[in-house]
């Protein structure tokens, strides 16, 4: 992979982030009413207080200047203070980032470890009983909202069986058991999406002529599966994994409420409820960055897997046939 390609992708991601950050900043302006009042929150809106807020947030200056100041601060991780608590937004988010990160990471791991092998299995047994069973299960998982799934999980595994704690983040080494049920609830739908995607990709590969040709010249069946079929299905599956990261992040909003986890998701709910605009902006920006990063990683990984996607400057010259 050439440095040029990496730079181009990085540049593209940066431009995208720039656009998103403008949109996020515009949230404040889009909120109904006077931005100064919004920023002041529930406190008493005396003219003095309003003037102070206007001065601190440069609200009397043009939009572009406001944005530049805000973005400059954001780059230094200074995202202002929460209207509700008065605490630094960066510190508030930082305290909850780890928990949500662990939740999303575990959810993604569950989705990939269940969805991808499940999809491969369904594809290999396509149209047979196993395939139908796997497909039915995934349909149920897909159509179960995360909160409903979460409640069922709590009821079965926490109340009835008592295997896992029902709520709370746990402390220290206790974290993992506390995250299992939320992560499963979070991953249900995404697992089903990955499963369907993997199944379709593997079936498409199985029908390729190069698989028949590999069989026709006696390549071992297991080698065909791993090196030919799965290899070919890797690009679409990886793209899918990159895409579902966004779904997982959005899903934390619901799941953290159900399992009473003090993560970013529940913070977002609180911030929106109390119209805590600086926090909402910061969270929206953070999620945008994470989703863009996931996309960037997928983009950068693809040429490593598929030589056809490598930039042409890298391609060696065509060798000539011997005469």
């Amino acid at each position: 992979m050439t440095a040029r390609y990496v730079l181009r992708r990085l540049g593209g991601t940066l431009v995208l982030l720039l656009v998103l950050s403008v949109a996020v900043f515009a949230l404040l302006q889009a909120a109904p009413g006077d931005p100064a009042r919004t920023l002041l929150g529930p406190r008493n809106a005396t003219p003095d207080a309003l003037a102070a807020v206007r001065a601190r947030h440069h609200l009397d200056q043009p939009f572009a200047v406001q944005y530049l100041r805000w973005a400059g601060d954001a780059l230094r991780l200074d995202l202002g203070t929460s209207i509700r608590t008065g605490a630094s937004v960066s510190a508030t988010i930082g305290g909850r980032l780890a928990l949500t990160g662990q939740l999303v990471g575990l959810g993604l791991a569950i989705a990939v470890l269940l969805g991808v092998p499940g999809g491969v299995l369904a594809a290999l047994r396509r149209y047979r009983a196993t395939d139908r069973a796997v497909q039915t299960a995934s349909l149920i998982a897909l159509s179960t909202p995360a909160f409903a799934g979460g409640l069922v999980l709590i009821y079965v595994f926490s109340l009835m069986l008592g295997w896992f704690p029902a709520y709370g983040p746990g402390t220290g080494g206790d974290r993992l058991p506390h995250l299992v049920l939320p992560a499963v609830a979070l991953a249900l739908g995404v697992t089903a999406v990955l499963l369907k995607l993997t199944r379709a990709a593997v079936i498409r590969e199985l029908d390729k002529e190069h698989v028949v040709f590999a069989r026709a010249r006696g390549v071992a069946e297991r080698r065909i599966l791993v090196h030919y079929v799965l290899r070919g299905a890797l690009v679409p599956v990886l793209t899918g994994v990159g895409l579902v990261v966004a779904y997982l992040l959005a899903g934390t909003v619901m799941v953290e409420q159900v399992f009473a986890l003090p993560g970013l998701g529940s913070l977002l709910v609180d911030s929106v409820t109390y119209r805590d605009v600086p926090l909402v902006q910061a969270e929206a920006l953070l999620i945008a960055v994470l989703v863009c990063l996931a996309g960037l990683l997928t983009d950068l990984a693809q040429p490593l897997i598929d030589p056809r996607l490598r930039p042409a400057a890298d391609a060696p010259r065509r060798p000539k046939e011997r005469r």
């Binding site: 390729k208 002529e209 190069h210 028949v212 040709f213 590999a214 069989r215 026709a216 010249r217 006696g218 390549v219 069946e221 090196h227 030919y228 290899r231 070919g232 897997i305 598929d306 030589p307 056809r308």
Partner: peptide, 24 residues
């Protein structure tokens, strides 16, 4: 049957662009 393929009998197909795995 599979063990016979490659050693005793092999099949060459029509489309050279589809017959080979693009990523290998």
């Amino acid at each position: 049957r599979a063990a016979l393929r490659g050693r005793r009998i092999a099949l060459l197909m029509q489309d050279p662009f589809a017959m080979l795995h693009p990523q290998l």
